[in-house]
Nucleic acid binder design. Sequence first.
DNA 1: ATACTTAGTTGTACAGTCCAACTTATTTAG
DNA 2: CTAAATAAGTTGGACTGTACAACTAAGTAT
Lengths: 257, 257
Amino acid sequence: MRGKDRTQGSGQGSGQGSGQGSGQGLGKSGHLDFPRPLTTVDVVIFAILDDRLQVLLVQRPAGEDEPFPLSLALPGGFVDVAKDRDLAACAARKLKEKSGVSSPYLEQLGSWGSATRDPRGWSATHAYFALIPPDASVLTSDARWCPIGAGFKEKLAFDHGEILASAIQRLRNKVEYTSLPAYLMPAEFTLPDLQRVYEIVLDRPLEKSAFRTRILSADMIEPVANMRRGPNRPAQLYRLRKGRDPVYFVRTFNPPE
Amino acid sequence: MRGKDRTQGSGQGSGQGSGQGSGQGLGKSGHLDFPRPLTTVDVVIFAILDDRLQVLLVQRPAGEDEPFPLSLALPGGFVDVAKDRDLAACAARKLKEKSGVSSPYLEQLGSWGSATRDPRGWSATHAYFALIPPDASVLTSDARWCPIGAGFKEKLAFDHGEILASAIQRLRNKVEYTSLPAYLMPAEFTLPDLQRVYEIVLDRPLEKSAFRTRILSADMIEPVANMRRGPNRPAQLYRLRKGRDPVYFVRTFNPPE
DNA sequence: ATACTTAGTTGTACAGTCCAACTTATTTAG
DNA sequence: CTAAATAAGTTGGACTGTACAACTAAGTAT
């Protein structure tokens, strides 16, 4: 471990430990030659498939020197300082590589960093979460969709179980009061379809009429010419309004309890 | 730049580019000897002082090889892989060093990483934001409180203007529908005090009666024995209920417009 | 034609905010 | 000692949006 003078910088001397400049083994030449954490980006990719909320997971490679060989993990990997302009670009790249999708909903989830999460040393990951429509997924061979619900927290590599749990929680939270599920829908869908997706994610039934007024008054979807025909009354088809950011509602649907 | 075989790992070959294990210049021995981004943690520390929302900023050190010498910046610095157990601990340490406060509200804000944000190379910062009460601040010499509002976005070092803007937005958002401002209050305070703080952060007046019912029904504060006396009718003093997480309200106060 | 099923609407009850006016408790001025 | 001033706190009606349940509408299956 280099940079023994590093510790000196963490006190409260003037100018030290502040900003990205000082306080860490930065000699007279500014070499910044102290150990740096490993830096990765992971993406939690959600889709509704088979009427279930599913996550895209990949299997870790086999090998003696691989951490968590053959375990399931979130798609992700090291930031490539030569290729990735920024973190979002890195996340978008990994999303594209694994799911084939390029412009869905992609939001930063948070970061996890510690000395112990990766056996190879201090590491930090920047986690993103993505919502993609069910028709868009073109998978690579090592990736597969896994329905959530099973006890992932224990089984996934690294702390990915924790990250996934956090993503699910964030998704559920936002579904309570935003239009996020719209990004999980195919190009055209009906209002009952959309309500179904809300119910799948929230895992509880919602009121039909309140749901309809909320969604329609949010002005986030617009009707198309066609109707969906079936064995009963046809339903109006809608599509997402273009360039629309997620809408925040101010009240929850009929709340649990 | 080492690790020329690095690019080979970013394709979609089986097992490559997935997880923190493979895909990057990892030779037969697993050395992980490719360039890593600089890793820092920055903290946006808010307090209400002089009836204004203020942020704690530090001045960057002078010096030829320092980026943004003498500019104002968020308190923060490199992750110390020897000292910091995890990111939150690192943030708490930096908060303590600069403000003297140890257990306020500390929440992860997000991360910013790119090739260009630091002139010394690819860097990523993990940003936190903290709320501290007005009576708790014991500053170090290089730190000072700055009222928000002035065009920080341009003047701060690195992309700290952007991070600060994001923190302010998050704070305002959350104040609309949570009890977060409670963490900005001194140990004992009155309901009108609390309402004042909400109004300062949101920069608009709120309805007294709706405010009171909301706050009181949220069950996050409890009355103490005393009253605050003054030149007019005394007001009931309250304190934060212990171990209470922020409460989420489901409706905004009288919304702007 | 009739039953069945799902789409979509309507109406009443209720909860919480908005707004404005009101009451209450104290200090200060005369 | 009373009256004015001021801020704390309460009350009630208008309004908005949800919860719930019953209803109508439009198609298929028999």
